[in-house]
Simulated scan of single mutants.
Amino acid sequence: MRLTPRFLLSAFDEAHFPKEAQTHNAPEVAFLGRSNVGKSSLINALLGGTQARVSSTPGRTRSINFFGLYDDPRPQPEVIFADLPGYGYAKISKSISAEWSGFIDPYLADRETLALCICLVDTNIPPQPPDTQLINYLREIRRPFLVVGTKSDKLSNNTLGNSVLALKKGHGVDEVMPCSVKDQRNIKHLWARILATRDKPFVD
């Protein structure tokens, strides 16, 4: 299914979140991860363009950027992507960015149309405490999430297998989906998981 992406808005405050007139209550998929984990690159690979800005400076994204994906000529989006600010960058904060308590926590905890959180972790490094903190928080607020391992093309199959096992154990999860923008590993499978949110009820 080929969808047309369109940038909706950047939200720096809870009051700026897209309204029903813009989203038509389409399911929203949030992308979260530490700074420089490859979040913008993955979003661009899924969207088939350069809608999400890729910066060489970690921590550059400071807003939630919303993108609608449309099955033209239908006027309502099939799904909404929410690109959240990266966390864990020392120049911004020691753990999850200070801005999170102001408008990102409310988005994750209270947004009725948020259907899935994509938690990105780097397959090239050991499990990181901020990632575990995020995953545990999503468990506490009962948000569906999927852990995706980025940059998997940099590892051999054996090394990647060991890395995935370590990430699963370190974060206490049953699944880590290794993905790669360069060789398109599991990009189609990730798309399928995202599109499946259209058939599931939202969390109350």
Rank of each mutant, 00 (worst) to 15 (best):
L160Q: 05
V164I: 14
L190H: 05
S101F: 12
A90C: 07
E78I: 01
K182I: 15
E14W: 10
I96K: 11
K94W: 12
I92D: 07
F81R: 02
P58Y: 06
A109T: 09
P144I: 08
E112K: 15
D131A: 13
D83A: 06
V37G: 05
A26Y: 00
G38A: 13
E14G: 05
S101V: 13
I64C: 03
F145N: 04
D204W: 14
K151I: 03
L155D: 08
L32A: 14
D131T: 14
D183K: 09
V29H: 05
S97N: 15
P129S: 06
L116V: 04
G172T: 02
N162A: 13
P75G: 02
L42C: 09
F17K: 03
F31S: 02
A166T: 06
L84Q: 07
A52K: 00
D105M: 12
G59E: 05
M1A: 07
D71K: 14
D13K: 12
S63F: 08
S101D: 12
T123A: 06
R74G: 02
E140M: 12
P126N: 08
E112L: 15
K182V: 15
V164S: 02
H171I: 02
I187L: 15
S156H: 08
L160F: 04
L69H: 00
G33R: 09
D71C: 10
R185F: 05
R34W: 09
N157P: 00
T57M: 08
P129H: 06
K200T: 15
D183W: 11
G38R: 10
R74L: 09
A166P: 01
L165R: 13
D72F: 01
I125S: 12
A166L: 10
R53L: 10
G149Q: 06
D110H: 15
F81Q: 02
F81G: 00
S55V: 07
G48E: 01
A26V: 01
P73C: 03
P144Y: 13
Q76P: 01
T197M: 03
G172S: 03
N158H: 14
Q51R: 11
L47V: 12
R62D: 03
A196I: 01
P144V: 05
Q184R: 15
N162F: 11
K151S: 03
